[in-house]
């Protein structure tokens, strides 16, 4: 390529030598190659003043060469070449400035991408946190179901929710937050089903427990009254009072009035309970008579309680005669036990 480029100069030099003319110095020949080389059009376009200047020096160099003045030829060639190279340097400057501008534009565009990617990452991270919260919500939902004893009242539903929750935890630990969130939502729904399934049974038991707790307090209060025993049955709390009546009488023994008054105080302390008063006898006598006696005794006690401030509307009475003995009627001690009035704190209906 370079050989081709310099071929005309070489041919010209050879011709001049052949013709006996003075050959141009190498510096001048080099410059001549440059001034028509790759930079020439760009210099003409961007730096015409410099082009004009080095062309002027070039002409001076040719003239000096024609005059066979080697020193001046080299002098003007040097001026032309240095000016030419100055123009090339200015072109390079322009190229570098363009590269700088292009790089700055790339930096700006990368900045935009960076900002958007940062925002996307932050948003995705927040979504990840949402998944974490969902997994925790599932755990809480299961704990809530357990707190109302779903393990007993809704075991299958609770087990299903727990198994799903474990899967959600595993997905989250594996970094699959989208899947973890989805599974956790299922676990929450399943825990909710367990909760709703267990709730009625739990509420019923809670009510029973609350009533039983009150029964225990009443039993403790009643234990302070002599000749009184108590027991909890399905119908309610039974407080059994003995020796209130003498023989087959239906009026309360004078020394037992205090016991009934104490009982009235206890009943008034627990106003939510309906009270059933049942009269009982042993089996000595005709059944109809025993029934009448037991009914009268129940009403007597009810009347006495009413006088002691117990609301009449709360009280109902029944006579059972000797039909519900609690001990052996063949023995005196047993018969004494069967002669009783039972004050029943009825269990509230559901």
């Amino acid at each position: 390529m370079s050989l081709l480029k310099f071929t005309p100069a070489l041919i010209a030099s050879a011709l001049m030598i052949a013709c006996g003319s003075n050959p141009k110095p190498a510096e001048l020949q080099d410059f001549e190659a440059k001034r028509v080389g790759e930079y020439a059009p760009k210099i003409a376009e961007n730096y015409p003043a410099l082009q004009k200047e080095f062309d002027g020096y070039y002409k001076e160099a040719l003239k000096a060469h024609d005059d066979d003045n080697k020193n001046m030829t080299l002098y003007f060639t040097d001026l032309a070449d240095t000016t030419f190279r100055t123009a090339v340097s200015l072109l390079n400057q322009k190229d570098f400035q363009a590269r700088k501008a292009s790089a700055e534009e790339r930096t700006n565009q990368a900045g935009v991408v960076l900002e958007k990617a940062g925002q996307r990452k932050e948003f995705a991270s927040l979504k990840g946190q949402v998944a974490e919260v969902k997994v925790k919500d599932a755990e809480l939902a299961i704990l809530k179901a357990k707190s109302i004893n779903a393990a007993e009242y809704a075991p299958e539903q609770l087990a299903q929710a727990e198994a799903t929750f474990e899967k959600a935890k595993a997905a989250f630990a594996a970094g699959d937050t989208a899947e973890a969130q989805k599974i956790a939502e299922t676990a929450i729904a399943q825990a909710d089903v367990a909760l709703k399934t267990a709730q009625p049974a739990y509420d019923k038991q809670a009510k029973i427990n609350a009533v039983d707790a009150q029964y225990k307090k009443i039993m403790a209060d009643a234990a302070r009254i002599p000749s009184v025993t108590s027991r909890i049955e399905q119908r309610g709390l039974f407080i059994s009072m003995r020796d209130l009546f003498q023989g087959q009488k239906t009026t309360v023994r004078g020394d037992k009035m205090v016991a009934i008054m104490e009982m009235a105080k206890i009943i008034n302390n627990y106003p939510d309970f309906k009270i059933l008063i049942e009269g009982h006898t042993d089996n000595k006598g005709k059944a109809a008579k025993l029934m009448e006696i037991s009914e009268n005794r129940a009403q007597t006690v009810a009347s006495t309680l009413g006088k002691e401030g117990v609301a009449v509307a709360r009280i109902s009475t029944a006579g059972k005669g000797g039909t519900e003995p609690i001990d052996d009627n063949s023995k005196k001690a047993g018969r004494e036990k069967n002669q009783r009035v039972e004050i029943i704190f009825l269990r509230p209906a559901d």
Binding site: A110, G118, R120, K121
Partner: peptide, 27 residues
């Protein structure tokens, strides 16, 4: 400037990839 541009582009690519990975995880 080109060095800064290259570094910025690499950082942008890296952050974009990180964002993509996280987005794939969270859906």
């Amino acid at each position: 400037a080109e060095d800064i541009a290259n570094k910025s582009e690499n950082a942008a690519k890296k952050l974009d990839q990180e964002a993509r990975t996280l987005e794939n995880k969270v859906g």
